[in-house]
């Protein structure tokens, strides 16, 4: 679990931010629904509602950036394979230059 959290720090942080955002929205709603005075509701709107929106935005950004990082790593792997394929190792049989091997994948790339 700790290893997964370390490897997937961006997704872990995204989940934390999304949960915190949802809790913030809930607190804002409960706080503002407890009173009928707008002057008491507006601070809840700001602290609960806007902070919740910002946290949900941060969580979404982190999650989407994690997906992009995964795709970037996958493109790295593909490009490594292609470059290796174009430049056969010295002494290799010329007919076997198309041999393809799958490099070991990092845990972050396996989902």
């Amino acid at each position: 679990m700790t290893r997964w959290l370390r490897n997937q720090w961006d997704r872990s942080a995204a989940v934390v931010a999304l949960v915190a955002g949802a809790v913030s929205l809930l607190i804002g709603w409960i706080g503002s629904s407890d009173t009928v005075y707008p002057a008491q509701q507006i601070p809840f709107l700001i602290s609960g509602g806007l902070v919740g929106v910002v946290l949900i935005g941060v969580g979404s950004t982190l999650w989407l950036s994690a997906d992009l990082r995964d795709e970037w790593r996958k493109l790295d792997e593909i490009q490594e394979i292609l470059l290796g394929d174009e430049e056969p190792a010295p002494g290799a049989d010329a007919d076997l230059t198309g041999t393809i091997t799958t490099p070991p994948r990092t845990e972050t790339a396996v989902r």
């Binding site: 806007l50 929106v53 910002v54 935005g57 941060v58 979404s60 950004t61 950036s65 992009l68 970037w72």
Partner: peptide, 19 residues
């Protein structure tokens, strides 16, 4: 809130462009 969300969108957009 708009600044924070817009900055996040910009970041994701840059990443998508690069990918």
């Amino acid at each position: 809130a708009t600044v924070a969300v817009a900055t996040g969108l910009r970041f994701v957009g840059r990443g998508r462009q690069a990918v």
